[in-house]
Design a binder for these strands. Structure first.
Length: 107
DNA sequence: TCCGTGACGCGAT
DNA sequence: CATCGCGCCACGG
């Protein structure tokens, strides 16, 4: 039976799982996460997922180039948390050369 | 179903 | 470096 099984792509789940793979002391970007999750054009959704889903290492997700996308105090907290786990910054951006996490095909 | 809304990204100015 | 504009796309009202 050609079951029109919707099997929702569950973008939120895919994205959440990817984010959970970022190890302590390393970071990634919205775009890279969307891509690794199999939804290369859904960078904007990564942010939404981070707000909805609790328990994710949200502080390890940065904007392109290692920039913090949050504003105000949240931005300060994110930077504080990252530096606390060893991530170093160069001006306003994290040193991606050394701290960006590169996802692999099959975890 | 249509419409506004983003924790975005990137090129142009 | 700071801004702007536009494409992108799942969600919720």
């Amino acid at each position: 039976m050609t079951l029109p099984r919707k099997a929702k792509p569950l973008l939120a789940t895919a994205i959440s799982n990817i984010i959970r793979r970022i190890p302590r002391g390393r970071v990634s970007t919205y775009g890279a996460i969307a891509k690794a999750a199999g939804h290369p054009r859904c960078a904007r959704h990564v942010g939404r997922v981070l707000r909805q889903v609790q328990g994710l290492p949200w502080q390890r997700v940065l904007g392109s180039g290692g920039r913090i996308s949050l504003r105000g105090e949240s931005a300060l907290e994110q930077r504080f948390l990252l530096e606390a786990e060893g991530v170093r910054f160069k001006g306003k951006r994290a040193d991606m050369k050394r701290f960006e996490h590169h996802f692999r095909r099959a975890s």
